[in-house]
Amino acid sequence: MTTTSYTVVGMTCGHCVNSVTEEVSAVPGVSAVDVDLESGGLTVTSDAPVDEAAVRAAVEEAGYSVAG
């Protein structure tokens, strides 16, 4: 199992968290998504490493960006 952490910029409310969770959950191979509104932390759990570009694209699709 692989866990990767990102920092999402621009989230302000629970709806933001839901949007990011929904989009990132749709990335192939992702088995769990945990988003922390306060820190902007995004933890992606998968059975095998997931393409970082796909995760970034999913976050951008939700209307936010990944720091770094």
Rank of each mutant, 00 (worst) to 15 (best):
1 M>K: 04
1 M>A: 14
1 M>F: 13
1 M>N: 03
2 T>I: 12
2 T>E: 15
3 T>W: 11
3 T>Y: 13
4 T>C: 01
4 T>H: 13
5 S>G: 12
5 S>H: 13
6 Y>H: 14
6 Y>K: 07
6 Y>P: 12
7 T>I: 14
7 T>Q: 13
8 V>K: 10
8 V>A: 08
10 G>W: 15
10 G>H: 15
10 G>S: 11
10 G>I: 15
10 G>N: 13
11 M>I: 06
12 T>C: 05
12 T>F: 01
13 C>A: 13
13 C>F: 14
14 G>V: 09
14 G>D: 11
15 H>I: 08
15 H>E: 14
16 C>A: 11
16 C>Q: 13
17 V>T: 15
18 N>T: 10
19 S>E: 08
19 S>T: 07
19 S>D: 03
20 V>Y: 12
20 V>T: 09
21 T>C: 01
21 T>Q: 07
21 T>R: 09
21 T>M: 02
23 E>H: 04
23 E>S: 10
24 V>F: 01
24 V>A: 02
25 S>Y: 02
25 S>D: 01
25 S>R: 01
26 A>T: 03
27 V>K: 04
27 V>S: 04
27 V>T: 05
28 P>D: 15
28 P>E: 15
29 G>A: 04
29 G>Y: 02
30 V>H: 10
30 V>L: 06
30 V>F: 01
30 V>D: 02
30 V>K: 12
31 S>Y: 01
32 A>M: 07
32 A>S: 15
32 A>G: 12
32 A>D: 15
33 V>Y: 02
34 D>M: 10
34 D>V: 14
34 D>Q: 11
34 D>C: 04
35 V>H: 04
35 V>L: 08
36 D>L: 14
37 L>Y: 09
38 E>I: 07
38 E>T: 12
39 S>R: 04
39 S>D: 06
39 S>T: 15
40 G>Q: 06
40 G>N: 11
41 G>R: 10
41 G>A: 13
41 G>S: 09
41 G>M: 07
42 L>T: 00
42 L>N: 03
42 L>I: 07
43 T>L: 07
43 T>P: 00
44 V>A: 06
44 V>D: 00
45 T>G: 02
45 T>W: 01
46 S>Q: 05
47 D>V: 00
48 A>D: 09
48 A>N: 02
49 P>F: 10
50 V>D: 10
51 D>Y: 00
51 D>M: 00
51 D>R: 01
53 A>E: 09
53 A>R: 14
53 A>L: 07
53 A>W: 01
53 A>P: 05
54 A>D: 11
55 V>Y: 01
55 V>Q: 03
55 V>I: 14
55 V>G: 07
56 R>C: 12
56 R>V: 15
57 A>W: 09
58 A>T: 01
58 A>N: 06
59 V>F: 10
60 E>W: 09
60 E>A: 09
61 E>Y: 08
61 E>V: 05
62 A>L: 05
62 A>K: 04
63 G>S: 10
63 G>M: 10
63 G>Y: 06
63 G>P: 08
64 Y>W: 05
64 Y>C: 07
64 Y>E: 10
65 S>L: 12
65 S>W: 06
65 S>A: 15
65 S>I: 12
65 S>G: 14
66 V>Q: 11
66 V>A: 12
67 A>H: 08
67 A>M: 09
67 A>P: 03
68 G>H: 10
68 G>C: 09
